[in-house]
Amino acid sequence: MGRWKNGILITYLVAIVFPFIFLFLLSMSSGWRFPDLLPEYFGFKNWGKVAGTESGIAQSFLISLVISLSVAVSSTLCGFVISRYVSYHPKKRLLTLLTYFPYILAPVVFGACLSYYFLKMGIFGTTFGVVLAQFIIAFPYALIFFSSFWNEKIKSYEDLVATLGGGSLTTFRKVLLPMARGLLMVCFFQTFLISWFEYGLTSIIGVGKVQTLTIKVFLFIKESNFYYGAMSCCMLIIPPVVMIYINKKYVFNKLI
């Protein structure tokens, strides 16, 4: 029975790890055609081009990083602050229901609806336009995420600080932010990943001018450049892996 369990565990681990290993091997290859068992070239030639401008992968990685960090920081902070007023509002149920509206439509359809207004504002096909479009998706998620934080216990802490003479700014800095530190980090990670892997909305609003790393992956696949596509996928995996490590080591362990 123990051998069966070990065999199932090993098979499970191989099934999870194999796609990532294969992507890495494919990113180091070139001229790998069927029915050849081995590629014509295997080395770091493709990765060496990342630092240059030939592939544009390094630039796309930086663009994606800037966009995702901007969306994560703004949506997390705005979601935390505004969720307080939504939670204490008399029409809380209606306002909470409205936060689900961006998720009713598919990202491509939602992007098509926004494109007219973004074109009028002159931000269609710009990095700021992509950040704003992704913020519209990530901000409602942050509102929903923080809705469970505001309860009677938190309200009693706020009333206590007010009784002792503390203002709203002091309450946020000294009481609410320290109490919600773990949730703020988790929400930041989640909204970062929402932005990092976003494709449909970015492709519509960015209109091909804002080439994030996710857009690059699909472009390489359409061009049948599987080696650069695999390399882009490897780079696409790096931030989530780092986020998971930080989340587990510094956030999750403290929450439990």
Rank of each mutant, 00 (worst) to 15 (best):
residue 151 N to E: 00
residue 151 N to L: 10
residue 151 N to A: 11
residue 152 E to Q: 13
residue 152 E to R: 12
residue 155 K to A: 13
residue 156 S to W: 13
residue 156 S to M: 14
residue 156 S to Q: 14
residue 156 S to Y: 14
residue 157 Y to M: 15
residue 158 E to N: 03
residue 158 E to Q: 10
residue 158 E to V: 11
residue 160 L to G: 05
residue 160 L to I: 11
residue 162 A to P: 09
residue 163 T to P: 03
residue 164 L to N: 13
residue 165 G to F: 15
residue 166 G to K: 10
residue 166 G to S: 12
residue 166 G to H: 12
residue 168 S to W: 15
residue 168 S to D: 12
residue 168 S to A: 14
residue 170 T to Q: 15
residue 170 T to Y: 15
residue 171 T to R: 14
residue 171 T to C: 11
residue 173 R to E: 09
residue 173 R to Y: 06
residue 173 R to W: 09
residue 174 K to R: 15
residue 174 K to I: 03
residue 175 V to H: 01
residue 177 L to Q: 01
residue 177 L to Y: 06
residue 178 P to G: 08
residue 178 P to C: 08
residue 178 P to V: 00
residue 179 M to H: 11
residue 180 A to P: 03
residue 181 R to D: 05
residue 182 G to T: 09
residue 184 L to M: 13
residue 184 L to D: 00
residue 185 M to C: 12
residue 185 M to L: 13
residue 185 M to P: 01
residue 186 V to Q: 00
residue 188 F to E: 00
residue 188 F to N: 03
residue 191 T to G: 05
residue 191 T to I: 01
residue 191 T to L: 00
residue 192 F to M: 05
residue 192 F to V: 07
residue 192 F to C: 05
residue 193 L to M: 13
residue 193 L to D: 03
residue 194 I to D: 01
residue 194 I to L: 15
residue 194 I to V: 11
residue 195 S to V: 04
residue 196 W to E: 05
residue 196 W to K: 02
residue 197 F to A: 08
residue 197 F to M: 07
residue 198 E to P: 03
residue 198 E to H: 06
residue 198 E to F: 04
residue 199 Y to A: 02
residue 199 Y to E: 03
residue 200 G to A: 06
residue 201 L to F: 01
residue 202 T to E: 08
residue 203 S to C: 04
residue 204 I to F: 07
residue 205 I to S: 09
residue 205 I to F: 02
residue 207 V to W: 02
residue 209 K to M: 10
residue 209 K to T: 11
residue 209 K to N: 13
residue 212 T to P: 06
residue 213 L to H: 07
residue 214 T to G: 03
residue 215 I to E: 05
residue 216 K to F: 05
residue 217 V to D: 02
residue 217 V to K: 01
residue 218 F to Q: 10
residue 219 L to D: 15
residue 220 F to M: 08
residue 221 I to A: 13
residue 221 I to N: 06
residue 222 K to H: 10
residue 222 K to Q: 15
residue 222 K to G: 09
residue 225 N to P: 04
residue 225 N to D: 13
residue 228 Y to I: 02
residue 228 Y to P: 00
residue 229 G to H: 02
residue 232 S to M: 05
residue 232 S to G: 04
residue 234 C to R: 12
residue 234 C to M: 11
residue 234 C to H: 11
residue 235 M to C: 13
residue 236 L to Q: 09
residue 237 I to F: 11
residue 240 P to V: 02
residue 240 P to A: 08
residue 242 V to T: 04
residue 243 M to L: 15
residue 243 M to N: 04
residue 245 Y to S: 04
residue 247 N to W: 06
residue 248 K to L: 07
residue 249 K to D: 02
residue 249 K to W: 01
residue 252 F to R: 08
residue 252 F to T: 08
residue 253 N to L: 11
